[in-house]
Design a binder for these strands. Structure first.
Lengths: 135, 135
DNA sequence: TATCAACCTATTGACATACTAGGTAGATAT
DNA sequence: ATATCTACCTAGTATGTCAATAGGTTGATA
């Protein structure tokens, strides 16, 4: 289940894309438009900045802006940044310690196949697919 | 992410299917074979009994057994019983209160489409597809 | 230098996860 | 009848995550 972190991050990025005009967009405006607590959004945009998805600028006239074109943001990258790996089971997380049951686990092939489907879906879907009004 | 409850439930059902011989199988045996705490499994099988997936019998010679053929257990039903709805976002849970943003939500169609894929995958996959040794 | 905005650390209440502990009730073998 | 084996029941606990809130510091511009 996707939590508010992932869902709000998506809404922030959609908001930034829909209001893109070359300048920085203050978080206050995004919070007001999206009707989400600005304080809580600070945590989310901090992750987006650290993850290299947006850039922030302090001071008067400051705010946030996208670093790429909307078609260059896979939804999967956004979700994984906010929620952690998309993996369905712990033993399929990248760099997880090898499960001793892996070789004979009757369910592992199912989880693997499903994870591939999830990955394909969310990495082929782009931020640009979620934007309604473009200028 | 599927938790131990869902994963262990699947292992219990696979174990029951693979050792099916008309008699009841004691939880002690399942716990030993699967190397999972019997006490913890008690919580899981209780849910499986309440959910109508298996039946339990007390006393000497008692234990648990399947109530259907393995091809009649969709993996999705097992997971939803143990983990709750497969829905990716709260607003798509059956009987959830209508989200006020639903009509204009830019991400809802994506979540809907994805939920359909997840549902189709796990309801077409059956317990019988996970069994390795059949008699 | 006043203003506006990002950025930083910390705390909180509620809930879920993964167990453990100790008992009661029910069915069968002797 | 009773010992034995089994499911079944209620409760507790440590750890972590979620969804926020609170208050302050740094940085850029007018």
């Amino acid at each position: 289940m996707i939590s508010t972190k992932g869902r709000y991050a998506l809404r922030v990025l959609i908001d930034l894309a829909e209001h893109e005009d070359g300048s920085y967009i203050p978080l206050k405006d995004i919070a007001a438009r999206q009707n989400i607590s600005k304080k809580y959004l600070e945590i989310i945009v901090k992750n987006l900045v650290n993850g290299g998805l947006i850039s922030g600028m302090s001071g008067k006239g400051g705010g946030y802006r996208l670093l790429r074109n909307p078609e260059e943001y896979p939804v999967g990258e956004i979700i994984e940044l906010m929620e952690g790996p998309l993996a369905t089971v712990a033993c399929l997380v990248q760099d997880a310690e090898e499960c001793p049951r892996a070789a004979s686990c009757p369910t592992l092939p199912m989880w693997s196949e499903f994870d591939q489907i999830v990955h394909d879906y969310f990495y082929s879907k782009k931020l640009s697919d979620l934007i309604q009004v473009r200028q």
